[in-house]
Design a protein around this nucleic acid. Structure first.
Lengths: 218, 218
DNA sequence: TGTACATCAGTGAACGCGCGTTCACTGATGTAC
DNA sequence: TGTACATCAGTGAACGCGCGTTCACTGATGTAC
């Protein structure tokens, strides 16, 4: 392996696309394409085009289109976790319910800010078969954030029950459904449409808390 | 217009594909294709093939692929409403909370029983542009079922608040997210996976009720 | 340090594919007389 | 009732398209001597 630190900038740039950085560049290009043009436009060739590389170059880093898209989706999960973490910072760790509110806010906000990426993350037919281990890991990482907060709420007594999974599934389902129905424009076509999504999200966030506190999760 | 009632069976069958029934046949074929082979296989040509008709025949009934799929999706909404109604029958109208439970059960059950149809119903890019008015109407019809039950719960005092839309959005989001995450296999890849979907659904159904009752929807 | 060689990340032509859509047609149907 | 005609729901050939994938290649890189 060569040492990047000893190279001039121009040499590093020249090398960048010749030793391992194209993988990262393709993932970034995938995110860029899906953000700009949506999921339908997210073809292997479009990603290669965006990366200014021939359409056969990706095959040196991903064995198929599905694997490439899985890597892009995994990157999406990582960015969502990052966004949620930003909502969490500056919040006292002593209040797990505030942590839950932050997760809900972060989840919906990510979906609203990056709708196409969010859609890609939940489009399993695009990454199948051979669902990339990286995608699985990224999903698990995202879910663990929620799970740990629920455990904290249970240990502090804010939520009754021992098993964190059902209440976690409830909270996740609610924010996920809210985000999806909003992105799909379903609310806009019904009487709900007149309600601002941010206001609706915080109302629903509170009702998640209420549901978590009131229902005996045993 | 001719009178179908005066025709022999064989003549009616012969005519069936020549005067207006192909539209219905194509919608049924669309449902059949998507159920059998999934959304990816749902092309205009596949639907025509299923209906045993040339691939240009659909153009006499739908102006584009998007319009055909919109009609199929609308049929899906109608079947879901029908399924929910089956869950509702045999329940005392005096208890609106039981009505809410029935809607939640029916929603998740439809998604589990007809996963591909359910996915099609919430894939707006397949029916755009020119989203069929029929699809909009079917969506609205489905949502109204929920909205009216919420209104009943509010009038009976089971839920606090005047505006039925936010609590309806909350309930819908939760069952929708649960169904979607389950169908996408997201739960299966996390610790939640070990929980039976029916049990999880009824637990979450109860927590929706709790959230609806506890939270001041004003 | 200089040279010969192996490695391997790129290129671009080529493939076969099913797709959505168009179009001239044909033949069964309903209608006017 | 019988005949001539208009209508229109079907057919099937044809189009151009972008796609995923393969393959022989080339040229820059790192390595062995």
């Amino acid at each position: 392996m060569y040492d990047k630190g000893t190279m001039s900038t121009s040499k590093r740039r020249k090398l960048a696309y010749h030793h391992g950085d194209l993988e990262r560049a393709l993932i970034d290009s995938g995110l860029a394409v899906v953000k700009r043009s949506g999921i339908e436009a997210l073809s292997l060739r479009a990603v290669a085009r965006q990366a200014k590389v021939s359409h056969s170059a990706p095959y040196h880093h991903f064995s198929s289109k599905a694997e490439l898209l899985a890597a892009v989706a995994a990157a999406g999960f990582d960015r969502m976790v990052e966004g949620i973490r930003q909502q969490t910072t500056g919040i006292g760790l002593d209040d797990p319910l505030e942590g839950l509110r932050a997760i809900g806010r972060g989840y919906v906000m990510f979906a609203v800010c990056h709708p196409s990426v969010f859609r890609l993350m939940f489009r399993p037919e695009l990454t199948r078969p051979s669902k990339h281990p990286r995608l699985l890991a990224a999903e698990t990482r995202a879910f663990r954030t929620l799970l740990e907060t629920i455990v904290g709420a249970q240990q502090s007594g804010a939520i009754v029950g021992q098993d964190p999974r059902p209440p976690a599934a409830f909270a996740w389902s609610t924010v996920h459904g809210l985000a999806m129905l909003h992105l799909d424009g379903v609310f806009a076509e019904t009487p709900v449409g007149q309600i601002d999504i941010q206001i609706l999200a915080s109302q629903i966030n509170e009702s998640i808390i209420s549901g978590l506190k009131a229902h005996p999760w045993q």
